[in-house]
Nucleic acid binder design. Sequence first.
DNA 1: CGTCGTGGTATGTCTAGACATATTGATCGC
DNA 2: GCGATCAATATGTCTAGACATACCACGACG
Lengths: 241, 241
Amino acid sequence: MSLHRRIYADLEGRILSGDLSPGDRIPFEHELTDRYGCSRMTVSKAISELAGRGLVTRRRRAGTFVAQPKAHAAVLAIPDLRAEVIERGQAYAYVLLERIEREPEGAEEIELASGGRLLDLTCLHSADGAPLALEHRLIALGAASQAIDVDFQTVPPGSWLLDSAPWTEAENRISAIAADARAARLLELKPGAACLCVERRTWRDGQGVTRVWQTFPGDRYDLVARFSSAHSPVLAKEARR
Amino acid sequence: MSLHRRIYADLEGRILSGDLSPGDRIPFEHELTDRYGCSRMTVSKAISELAGRGLVTRRRRAGTFVAQPKAHAAVLAIPDLRAEVIERGQAYAYVLLERIEREPEGAEEIELASGGRLLDLTCLHSADGAPLALEHRLIALGAASQAIDVDFQTVPPGSWLLDSAPWTEAENRISAIAADARAARLLELKPGAACLCVERRTWRDGQGVTRVWQTFPGDRYDLVARFSSAHSPVLAKEARR
DNA sequence: CGTCGTGGTATGTCTAGACATATTGATCGC
DNA sequence: GCGATCAATATGTCTAGACATACCACGACG
């Protein structure tokens, strides 16, 4: 293991173990060069790594200090549903319910489409025969023009877009909603049942690509986010309850 | 702006704009030293930063290549409720409803407590007079023994724990549930209304610290996760609808 | 024809300096 | 006592090298 990794690991260990508490000053760089018998560049690389991950904050003339723990932050993976179901060893089924090419309506849709037309898709994902998610998706044909030639009878739009229309910006909004009559029927729930709704909007260089609402039965689906450090979330996955 | 930041920004821009696609090789370090008229160390620092954020992968002898975009992943911030409400400029109110010190019951509670007793708290968070979240929390007194001396009449347990009991591992589970009679009464909802439930468990070096269930009215609260790069989720926040 | 070195190359790590810059703490003048 | 000034100091950036290491390609050899 390289020296700067070792210095990094030593300091990280002291911080995570509580030996160094938030607000404490870590040794000056020149003290660490003495301690490890290396140049300042090597020490600096280790500390820069700590600073980049938010474990410490550096202040000229004052020194380097253990940062206050961040607010809880979790990496939430929102993978392709098809891939996820298959990975769990379940039978994946997908049905396209509706496919409409149309003009955008309303300010939000016009902003998404940015001058082009929209592809409006509704589909249902199932795992082992049980409905898993109702998906309503808008695709901006100006940003993903090839979508017009895809019938989405067999390929879920999420999987297709992941391969075909890269994005640079995204927003996920997670909320709880009551199932309306149609969602209840399709998801085999009682109307009004609590559902988890994930709304995701993606952009590419500021131009809208797609906007999707995925509705999951609240009693059959959880989003799980794990992480193993107060400062640097590293691991996440999504799971069925 | 420093030179290595500029080199970083230039390459990041070319990757995010699609000028360099996944799998493409970025210029060799010696080409970049020529281009920017600097030493290899400076170029290497910029590329190391890109590699650290997962935008590129480096292979000796072969070169450095633009990485395949990661599966959808978002950084989800789940901050301290008090801090969040105050930051939004709303009036924060907090009421402790129940405080019980007791023995753990059942396998999961015994595992959390790891030999010690439990502090069982129930409290209600409000923003501008409207109930925002019902919180039920278990604290392992073995891991956070000072909690026994805190009455939690004015300090929310989440805020106290954030300062007093650091954690090294955590899991968040997000689901939609129907409000039961008690939750509906306290959150001023109809029984059965859809609620967003965030369950969080934290550990310190493998030992359980706390487990909390926060129930939010589904129509008054969203979790929002934003990120601005296919490769490196960088920004996140939580927002009220 | 396949397999085993082997050399060349790009990254990985590190050094011993240099100068820049921000900030602190002390000192001086009012 | 108080504010302005200044020097000391820790970090920030950068250089021009050096050697290490992994890996690919090519050629020699069985």
